[in-house]
Design a protein around this nucleic acid. Structure first.
Lengths: 156, 678
DNA sequence: GACTGTAAGCTACACATT
DNA sequence: AATGTGTAGCTTACAGTA
């Protein structure tokens, strides 16, 4: 029951001619960092600007009531959530006497700190066939008008 | 401090002090503070050239220690200091070159601009490594690295050849860097940087006295002007079509007359000239005919390399009137070759010699008997199939409109597919796959064949068949294709994702990524398999697969709320499976840590990037991760091994806009857990 | 209680952009 | 020059180890 099918014919031309092409190129830019796979993946924050904008939009469009009812409780209750985690069992407060530190560092680190080969994966590979190359320039389309009619009459 | 001491030591040469300092430094390079290590390493690098005495403890000299740190130190800055201070010699150069792939882009950059630009002779780098570093430098994700690599070539390295471009290309061994287009990329970037400061003119003399380097220059420059749409300059440098056809003929003749030492060079020149010809304007009838006749003759020659063949077919399409004209010509060519093979079959000592030469590569694939006649027929067939393949890559018209192809299908392609020779079968299948792009009925008729090849063929055939199958589904739609084979396709996909061959896993992943992203195919089990495969320890070295899916998952989840919903529905159970595999890792296996997996999954299912992409939160379920939180908490009080990781993902979820009801559920569940724990 | 590794938040700085 | 962006490093806190 899981297998659903939604489709028309020829997805490559469908997509590449449609605007979805542009939409995918959005990801070419946003994913240009973080291309190297899970071992080198990092979360990039600093969406604070866009988030703030979004919130402002919400404030403008939605009522302030929803704002209060949703966000304020969530903030409060979420802190409770933190407390639940394990806060009450805090140990007694002591000053930490520091003795001589061992200054050597354990380098069992086998990582060579190298990037993998960059396969330059982009929307381009998702918009092509495996076997059939896509030629951006149609080679005969210009000549076709005059010759095509001739040829057909000749052959037939 | 150590630096000062070291400098002092240089002035007051005291052996005891020196040894003391050195052994102290040997400890400080292992200090846990990066800043200390930086100092230690700078100090040590002052001693590197004066002291090659091995350390008694590990038998390593200073330089060996430095190169070891260069590879292993976790601090980018420590590595940077070593890059900057390490002297360049035969032992250190490979380590420095390796840093062109350092994770830190500043390190990559300074290797190019401070080290590799400084070497006296770039030929000390073996050409394979040289092209590898050029490729990675010029196509680096970071702009400044690309620039540094480009400048290294265009400013420093070319100086070694006295600013003489052709001399430079010769020293560069461009013929060794053709694979992957590295040579072309390098020259193109060089030309782009120096275009203004050089005037490039190709006159008759130039064309008549081509060397591999000048021919390559002509080819790359032509391509560059073409891609920049600089039509006037292009007209200026390119000869007329007729002349160019003569040149091609000329060098082709030289190639065949060449000695063993020079034949490679002429073959290369011909390849470049054919490349240039692709950018000519074939409007002129006389030129077009001349070119056509030259090509028509060349393509019949027996021992053509594959890329010549591809260029020839491509050019013949340019000189043809239209697609039907083109296919007719190619079919003529193919039957000529077949005839030729049949005739040569009877006698002709000399051609069988040639075949042997060419056959060397193909021989290993061909079955046992070395009978030259059989071999020759086989090679002729193979050549016909290759021509057919290149032709079909170009063809667009449907089979009904271009029925000439049927003939070749029945007479050449089908027998090849049924052949017992592996090479022929592969190439035949390739052609069949391409023909199926032109006719839906034919495609559907052959689906079962492709499926059969995927499940029963040898690896190479499997790969081809799988690619064809995906192409067919992309082209004609999943329902149409699966109608033909029932529910086989889903299990076939799963089989391929589970395959032992990394290539097949990769093809299956990319194929599925395409299908899923284009909404041709949608299935939660398959999606889950993809995620599992992505993180699985066996995939850790499958870079293609990883990079493909690294692109796919965010693109999939952040482009539609429906997709994101699907992902979130499998997220928790998948994460659970992955954590369990992580806990069961064998010695020597490795995979991403549970926390990383959690963060990535949390990111994929985060509604905010989706909102940003859609530029509105219509249809976006802002509380989607709230539901995930509920899921997690429900599993949490059962399993305890998973506690840690699951709690971690809980903190990553976006719960600010969760609806009240879900929120309440979350809190209740949390409360229960707390009580149970107490 | 010492000592580690890890995670998260903050600050300062270098860099790029305009 | 002024701005924003991204990163490295520092600090703090906590949990596990033995």
């Amino acid at each position: 029951h899981n297998t659903m099918e939604i489709t028309e014919t020829d997805q490559v031309t469908n997509i590449s001619t449609n605007q979805e092409n542009e939409l995918l190129s959005y990801f070419d830019t946003t994913l240009s960092k973080n291309w190297a796979g899970p071992t080198h993946w990092k979360l990039r924050k600093t969406k604070s600007t866009s988030v703030k904008q979004d919130k402002n939009h919400d404030d403008g469009t939605n009522s302030a009531a929803t704002e209060r009812s949703q966000k304020k409780p969530s903030a409060r209750l979420f802190t409770i959530d933190f407390l639940e985690g394990e806060d009450i069992i805090t140990d007694d407060i002591f000053a930490l006497p520091r003795r001589a530190n061992i200054t050597v560092n354990n380098t069992k680190d086998h990582s060579l700190h190298l990037l993998p080969d960059d396969e330059n994966f982009s929307s381009k590979q998702l918009l092509r066939y495996f076997m059939k190359p896509v030629f951006s320039v149609a080679r005969w389309k210009n000549k076709n008008f005059k010759s095509q009619t001739d040829e057909t009459t000749e052959i037939v | 401090m150590y630096l000062i001491l070291t400098n002092i030591l240089f002035c007051y040469n005291s052996e005891d002090l020196y040894q003391d300092l050195k052994s102290a430094l040997y400890y400080r390079i292992k200090d846990k503070e990066a800043s200390v290590r930086i100092q230690a390493v700078t100090a040590l690098s002052r001693l590197q050239s004066a002291d090659d005495e091995p350390d008694q403890k590990d038998g390593l000299t200073i330089i060996q220690k430095l190169t070891w740190i260069l590879r292993h130190d976790a601090s980018a800055e420590v590595r940077r200091v070593i890059i900057l201070n390490l002297e360049i010699n035969d032992t250190t150069l490979p380590s420095l070159i390796e840093r062109t792939r350092d994770v830190d882009f500043i390190n990559r950059r300074i290797v190019f601009e401070r080290k590799l630009s400084q070497i006296a002779d770039f030929q000390v780098i073996p050409s394979e490594a040289r092209f590898k570093l050029i490729k990675s430098g010029l196509s680096d994700r970071d702009k400044s690295v690309r620039k540094a690599a480009g400048k290294m070539i265009a400013d420093s390295w070319i100086k070694q050849a006295d600013q003489n471009l052709l001399e430079f290309l010769e020293r560069m061994d461009i013929m060794d860097g053709m694979a992957g287009g590295v040579s072309e990329k390098m020259l193109a970037s060089l030309l782009e940087l120096r275009m203004s400061s050089m005037s490039i003119k190709f006159d008759g003399q130039f064309w008549e006295n081509l060397s591999p380097e000048s021919a390559f220059l002509a080819y790359v420059y032509t391509n560059l002007l073409h891609s920049k749409k600089m039509e006037e300059q292009l007209d200026e440098i390119l000869p007329e079509v007729t002349r160019h056809a003569f040149y091609i003929q000329h060098y082709n003749n030289l190639w065949h007359q060449a000695t063993k030492e020079t034949e490679g060079e002429y073959e290369f020149i011909v390849a470049q000239m054919l490349g240039v010809a692709k950018k000519l304007d074939y409007a002129d009838e006389v030129g077009r005919r001349k070119m056509y006749s030259v090509l028509r003759e060349m393509i019949l020659e027996p021992d053509l390399p594959d890329d010549h063949l591809a260029s020839l077919v491509n050019l013949m399409s340019l000189t043809a009137m239209d697609e039907r004209d083109f296919t007719r010509i190619m079919i003529d060519v193919i039957s000529d070759i077949q005839e030729q093979a049949d005739i040569d079959d009877v006698d002709n000592e000399s051609s069988s010699k040639r075949i042997k030469l060419e056959g060397l590569a193909a021989k290993e694939y061909l079955s046992d008997e070395a009978d030259p006649q059989i071999l020759q027929v086989m090679l002729a067939k193979l050549k016909c199939l290759s021509i057919c393949k290149f032709m079909l890559e170009i063809c667009e018209e449907s089979l009904q409109d271009n029925s000439t192809i049927y003939g070749i299908l029945n007479q050449l392609v089908i027998p090849a597919v049924q052949s017992k020779e592996v090479v022929l079968r592969e190439e035949g299948l390739h052609c069949l796959g391409l023909v199926c792009h032109l006719d839906k009925d034919l495609a559907l008729h052959n689906i079962t064949l492709f499926v059969h090849c995927v499940s029963n063929g040898h690896d190479e055939l499997k790969k081809k068949a799988l690619m064809i199958l995906f192409d067919m589904i992309m082209k004609y739609g999943y329902p149409t294709v699966s109608e033909k084979i029932g529910d086989v396709s889903k299990s076939l996909f799963e089989l391929c994702l589970d395959n032992v061959s990394p290539d097949i896993q990769y093809i299956a992943s990319e194929g599925l990524a395409k299908l899923i992203l284009s909404r041709s195919y949608k299935n939660d089990d398959t999606l889950k398999l993809l995620v599992l495969l992505y993180f699985f320890p066996t995939s850790i070295d499958n870079t293609k697969l990883q990079q493909c899916l690294t692109y796919f998952f965010p693109a999939y989840c952040h482009s539609s709320s429906e997709n994101q919903k699907m992902m979130s529905s499998i997220a928790i159970s998948t994460l659970q499976d992955l954590i369990l595999t992580y806990l069961d890792l064998e010695e020597g296996e490795s995979m991403a840590a549970p926390n990383v997996i959690s963060e990535m999954i949390a990111h994929w299912t985060d509604p905010r990037p989706l909102v940003e992409y859609q530029r509105s939160n219509d249809d976006v379920d802002m509380s989607i991760q709230g539901k995930m939180a509920v899921d997690i908490l429900r599993t949490l009080h059962r399993a305890d091994i998973l506690r840690r990781a699951f709690c971690h993902i809980l903190t990553k979820l976006y719960l600010d806009e969760v609806d009240q009801q879900t929120l309440k559920t979350i809190l209740d569940l949390a409360e229960i857990i707390e009580k149970v724990q107490l």
